[in-house]
């Protein structure tokens, strides 16, 4: 399964390595195999959120709903 959206065929780890090179992440301490495994885990976490986002609405973290009750307003 391609991990980072690269549709090219071949070794998935090599695909990750190619993407890392394209992003300037080709330093010797950056391991494509470990990166590939880590990304797969994070994508699985992301997939686990599918059920939660179906009707969640907007994105703005500062947009607090005015219907919040407080001790002083009740």
């Amino acid at each position: 399964m391609p991990v980072v959206g690269d549709a090219a065929p071949g070794d998935p780890v090599e695909q990750t390595a190619a993407r890392m090179r394209a992003l300037g992440l080709d330093h010797e301490v950056l391991d494509p195999a470990a990166t590939h495994a880590d990304l797969a885990e994070r994508i699985a976490q992301s997939v686990s959120l599918d059920a939660l986002v179906s009707d969640s609405g907007g994105l703005d973290p500062t947009a607090f709903d005015s219907s919040w009750p407080t001790a002083d307003t009740e």
Binding site: S46, L52, V53, G57, G58, L59
Partner: peptide, 8 residues
């Protein structure tokens, strides 16, 4: 998706 889930 994470931002949407955060809203949820």
């Amino acid at each position: 998706k994470a931002l949407e889930a955060r809203r949820a």
